[in-house]
Simulated assay, not measured.
Amino acid sequence: MSLRELDPKTALKALQSNEAILIDVREPREYASERIHGALLFPLSTFDPAALPIDKNRGMIFHCGSGKRSADAVARCQAAGVPIDTHVRGGILAWKQAGLATIAIDPATGAMFDPQA
């Protein structure tokens, strides 16, 4: 099995059509300050492929900050025999560059910005 890279807009379509689950492998502080709506947190520092919420009806897409850690998570899954091969190429940085929304916390005020709320 190899690494399958999705561009952010293709990943979003898979999420919106309920074809995939998005897994954020960044660390809790990164997730708390900004995240993609609906992403579940499974930090790479404590990553266990066996703990992932496998759904036989939906695929799984990993993402991180830039794509490096999510590619590592895919490799860890494959080494453990968990059939996951997909991540967002460029991570949340590419997601934002594509003009897609994130949930963010304003560090000055603590206010949450969620364009989907």
Rank of each mutant, 00 (worst) to 15 (best):
M1D: 09
M1F: 05
M1N: 07
L3Y: 07
L3C: 03
L3E: 09
L3F: 03
L3G: 06
E5F: 06
E5I: 01
L6K: 00
D7R: 13
D7F: 09
P8L: 09
P8D: 11
T10E: 13
T10H: 08
T10S: 15
L12Q: 12
K13V: 10
K13W: 05
A14Q: 15
A14P: 03
L15T: 08
L15E: 06
S17V: 01
N18F: 09
N18S: 14
N18M: 07
L22S: 03
I23S: 04
I23P: 02
V25Y: 12
R26T: 11
P28W: 10
P28Q: 11
R29V: 11
A32S: 14
A32F: 08
S33A: 14
E34K: 08
E34C: 05
E34P: 00
E34A: 10
R35K: 14
I36T: 12
I36R: 04
H37P: 04
H37V: 09
H37G: 07
A39E: 01
L40G: 07
L40V: 01
L41R: 04
F42N: 03
P43K: 12
L44N: 13
D48H: 14
P49W: 00
P49K: 03
A50Q: 15
P53C: 09
P53G: 06
D55M: 08
K56Q: 13
K56S: 08
N57L: 09
N57G: 15
R58Q: 06
R58S: 00
M60E: 02
M60D: 01
M60V: 14
I61Q: 05
I61T: 09
I61C: 04
H63I: 02
C64A: 00
C64G: 01
C64Y: 05
G67V: 06
V74R: 01
A75N: 10
A75I: 02
A75Q: 12
R76S: 10
C77S: 12
Q78F: 09
Q78I: 14
A79C: 11
G81E: 11
V82D: 05
P83I: 12
I84R: 04
I84N: 05
I84P: 01
D85L: 05
D85N: 14
D85E: 15
T86R: 02
T86Q: 00
T86I: 02
H87A: 00
V88Y: 00
G90M: 06
G90C: 06
G90A: 03
G91A: 04
G91C: 06
L93P: 01
L93R: 13
A94L: 06
W95E: 07
W95G: 08
K96M: 08
K96F: 01
Q97G: 03
Q97L: 14
A98C: 07
L100Y: 01
L100S: 00
T102S: 08
I105K: 13
I105G: 01
I105S: 07
D106W: 08
P107F: 05
G110C: 07
M112A: 15
M112I: 15
F113C: 15
D114Y: 04
D114R: 04
D114C: 07
D114T: 06
Q116P: 03
A117R: 14
A117D: 10
A117T: 10
A117P: 00
